[in-house]
């Protein structure tokens, strides 16, 4: 799959400065950077939720702003940072909201997509549980299943590990990788550099609205770059794929 979700000359007032970036299907791309670096803004631009003041966001050669909202919603799944759900629905109904862009919750296709998403996130036992009664980790899984139920070509998630314990974080990252291997483009805002190092195919490091490093994790998260961007001396320990960051 060669489709690229690319932002060209994406210069958003205040937050993003003369940014040109393209992300690719079949890869896990991690966006890292200190607070206020513009990570979430970039992700929102990629999701088509924010229009850059100048420049364009393009997906597969088409300008984002020319793509109808519903068509965009079918191809880009976006998981916001907030785990808030307004009404106390069951997990199954919540996951079914992912079919809204298709309007087919009641059809066989829609049911199959919902079942598939519930299966991927291992939520069979939670199907008829109510959202408000779930733990933070369970709710995060349900919300992720909601995104998967759309069967989007792109999975964009803003700090998806924020509310998860170690085990659930690990499981979720494995699932993101599996989705990328299936040909989906996965773009994640990640705070934990070790997670980015171990699970991403590519890392974008942002600082002050600019991309200051871009490439394979070992290259983009080089200790010298970490020291420059986070102002904090660091070195990597362990084997590739299971690295840990030692600070100070």
């Amino acid at each position: 799959m060669t489709a690229t979700l690319s932002t060209v000359d994406l210069a958003l007032a205040r937050r993003l400065v003369d940014l040109t970036v393209s992300v690719h299907a079949g890869e896990v791309t991690a966006i890292c950077g200190p607070n206020g670096a513009g990570k979430s803004t970039l992700l929102s631009c990629l999701a088509g939720l924010v229009q850059p003041d100048t420049g364009v966001v393009a997906i597969g050669g088409r300008m984002m702003r020319q793509i109808p909202a519903r068509e965009r919603a079918r191809s880009i799944g976006y998981l916001p940072q907030s785990p808030h759900v307004a009404w106390d629905m069951t997990v199954e109904v919540l996951v079914g909201l992912g079919r809204l862009p298709w309007g087919d919750t009641a059809t066989a296709d829609g049911r199959a997509a919902i079942d598939e998403a519930i299966g991927i996130m291992d939520l069979h036992d939670f199907r008829s549980r109510r959202v408000m009664g779930l733990s933070g980790g369970e709710r995060a899984r349900a919300l992720m299943a909601r995104v998967l139920a759309t069967r989007p070509a792109w999975l964009l998630a803003d700090e998806p590990l924020a509310n998860l314990d170690l085990t659930h974080a690990l499981t979720l990252m494995r699932r993101f990788r599996a989705q990328a291997r299936l040909g989906r483009g996965v773009v994640l805002v990640l705070h934990d550099l070790a997670t980015a190092m171990n699970f991403a195919d590519r890392v974008l490091v942002m600082s002050g609205g600019r991309i200051v490093a871009d490439g394979e994790p070992a290259h983009a998260l080089d200790p010298a770059i970490i020291a420059k961007v986070w102002h904090c001396p660091a070195r990597w320990l362990g084997e590739p794929g299971a690295r840990a960051l030692s600070l100070g």
Binding site: S44, A47, G48, L49, A69, R70, R72, A73, R74, I76, G77, Y78, L79, P80, S82, H84, V85, A86, W87, M89, L97, G98, L100, P101, L143, R146, T150
Partner: peptide
């Protein structure tokens, strides 16, 4: 029900 941003991402 999922909040503004998620709602917009759903079209």
């Amino acid at each position: 029900a999922l909040g503004d941003a998620a709602a917009r991402s759903l079209g």
